[in-house]
Design a protein around this nucleic acid. Structure first.
Length: 423
RNA sequence: GGAGAAAUGGCAGAGUGGUCGAAUGCGGCAGUCUUGAAAACUGUUGAGGGUCACACCUCCGGGGGUUCGAAUCCCUCUUUCUCCGCCA
């Protein structure tokens, strides 16, 4: 959520920055400023009335104590009117505050200066690539064929149990997936991240805290009877562990990693690009979350990028890094780097990680602050990144490591798998 | 699921209608002392809104109510603890 206090002073900055996302926010910002003004002025009037009535109350108290009952009762009469007007003013103030909140919820984060202008994924900027795309033999198969051939994943079985997009992993397929989870968590904890296991269902407040609500209401599975949401990413429960906290400077940075399944309704996305493991309703992911001092957040973002690079390098998968353009940037993000693995058999790139700095956007919603060395309470910066999204890494491994006889296992995973070849 | 008890500042813990944003202890910060540290002593120390700065306003789990006045009384929700039941 954007900061009203800052919008008051730098409206032009916000108009310009949001234009990068293709949003003309000037009307909304004007409305925000109007409502903000309205809120503050009615609050001011309310405060005056309350102040007056407080002092009457004190006086009445004293009069009763000194036995001047009649005087006290006379004074009581004077409070009647004040009470009425304080009710009205309070309603006014609450209305304005509520309206302001709703308006602020509609605006996405402002992009960092590095974010290129653009409307969709075609305008993203490739900033790095590494790894050789293997030359596959004639007749190389896409991962869903391989999964079937070697009996690693059963998509139909998932349809029977639940529906499309909920595959069943079997045998070495399941083991390889578990190996990846352990490997990622080991890499992350070795880099200093604290491993956490968190709830997979979150309440509404958590959804608002990290910005999934109200923006992406329809993307999450909602459990109606208990009013809980299945998490679309571990970012939600992990970041919300710190909701409302006032941290000490010395607590920063806080770094966590966690493995969770992720659930996404993916309403309205069908077709060739969702085949196999490309897009699922339930998938596994290991996530990184960082709570940082604002002065350090971009350095931390670079550090996360390097960390994920290291993992892909060890897996020897061909990948590239994109800096997302304004039009493709997530609602809450100020700067995002997407990692994509090349899927040789599909001849296309698959997004397997997204590393973002949200600056104060989430912190403002979460009311997550820290006491800086100057004694002032400030909003932290929150960041997160995947390391990594499992099924697509699996897809990349199956396709890029396939041979005529079977599938080789990347060297770093062999100790985790207990086998080095699938045939 | 049933029966009871409770929820107060970073933590512990007083406070049952007015002078309580809240005793006390611990912790934190600053200082005195010390070669330095510890101990001891002194002072200071919640958050948000508002203001140029004050003033002022709000907040004692959430919401609502009674009252001139609520941490304190009433209703309701949530959570925690104890006992019983059930159970991976």
């Amino acid at each position: 959520m954007l900061l009203v206090t800052d919008i008051r002073e730098n409206k032009e900055k916000y108009i310009k920055a949001l234009a990068k996302r293709g949003i003309d926010a000037s009307a909304t910002l004007d409305e925000i400023l109007n409502v903000d003004e309205e809120r503050r002025s009615s609050q001011g009037k309310l405060d005056e009335v309350l102040s007056q009535s407080n002092s009457y109350s004190k006086e009445i108290g004293k009069l009763f104590q000194s036995g001047e009952t009649q005087k006290a009762n006379e004074l009581k009469e004077k409070t009647v009117e004040l009470k009425e007007s304080s009710k009205q003013l309070n309603d006014q103030m609450m209305n304005a505050a509520e309206k302001l909140q709703q308006l602020l919820y509609t605006l996405p984060n402002i992009p960092n200066d590095l974010v290129p202008a653009g409307t969709d994924e075609n305008d993203n900027e490739e900033i790095f690539s590494e790894g050789e795309v293997p030359k596959l033999a004639e007749g190389a198969l896409p991962h869903w064929e391989l999964a079937k051939k070697y009996d690693l994943i059963d998509f139909e079985l998932g349809v029977k149990i639940t529906g499309a997009g909920f595959p069943v992993f079997k045998g070495k397929g399941a083991r390889l997936q578990r190996a990846l989870i352990s490997y990622f968590l080991d890499k992350n904890t070795a880099a200093g991240y604290t491993e956490v296991q968190v709830p997979l269902l979150v309440n509404e407040a958590s959804g608002y805290g990290t910005g999934q609500l109200p923006d992406k209401e329809g993307q999450m599975y909602h459990v109606g009877v208990d009013d809980l949401y299945l998490i679309p990413t571990a970012e939600v429960p992990i970041t919300n562990m710190f909701r409302g906290d006032l941290l000490n400077n010395s607590d920063l940075p806080i770094t966590c990693t966690g493995f969770t399944p992720c659930f996404r309704r993916e309403a309205g996305s069908y077709g060739a690009h969702v085949r196999g493991l490309n897009r699922l309703h339930q998938f596994d992911k290991v996530e990184l979350v960082r709570i940082e001092h604002p002065d350090n957040s971009y350095k931390a973002l670079d550090g996360m990028v390097e960390h994920v690079k290291g993992i892909l390098r060890e897996l020897k998968l061909p990948y590239r890094i994109l800096r997302l353009c304004g039009g493709d940037l997530g609602f809450t993000s100020a700067l995002t780097y997407d990692f994509e693995v090349f899927s040789t058999a599909q001849d296309r790139w698959l997004e397997i990680s997204s590393v973002s700095n949200f600056e104060t956007f989430q912190a403002n919603r979460l009311k997550l602050r820290f006491k800086d060395t100057d004694g002032k309470n400030k909003l932290v910066h929150t960041l997160n990144g995947s390391s990594l999204a499992l099924p697509r890494v699996l897809a990349g491994i199956l396709e890029n490591y396939q041979t005529e006889d079977g599938i080789k296992i990347p060297e770093v995973l062999v100790p985790y798998c207990g086998f080095d070849f699938i045939k």
